[in-house]
Amino acid sequence: MHQEYTVVEGDFVNAGKASSSVKKTLKQLNVEPGIVKRVVVALYEAEVNAIAHAYGGKVLVDIESDKIKMVVADKGPGIPDIALAMQEGYSTARPEVRDMGFGAGMGLPNMQKNVDKLNVTSEVGVGTTVEMEVNF
């Protein structure tokens, strides 16, 4: 099953809509609640990142019989040092993002904790792609 969502820059009102929709689908498919939580927490973190840091992007979700694959690809400033961005507490978030309860430098590390596979690729001035997989 393939699903696609569009993420709009700065659109915090709709941040989490894709994750929420994926949650509903996984529940309908009777995926174990603990796994659903891991999937949606990781996807939500990625979605918020794309809205907070980039100029919009796409969320692509593929649900297979034994796993879910998620790609969050944004057009944006990119991440100059991915290893640094993966460190807990490192953040470049604007005050507006912090006002929404995010921007504490916990997003990428939390994605890592919740998924079975994480791959982050980025080109400065072009954008960032986060690929994640969770096994059922």
Partner: peptide, 24 residues
């Protein structure tokens, strides 16, 4: 909210952050 997203358990949340992202 980043901290809330790290919880394994599901307690009652007490918060001063009151916006749509609190609910999401």
């Amino acid at each position: 909210m980043s901290d809330v997203l790290t919880l394994k358990d599901t307690p009652m949340l007490v918060t001063g952050l009151c916006n749509i992202q609190t609910i999401r």
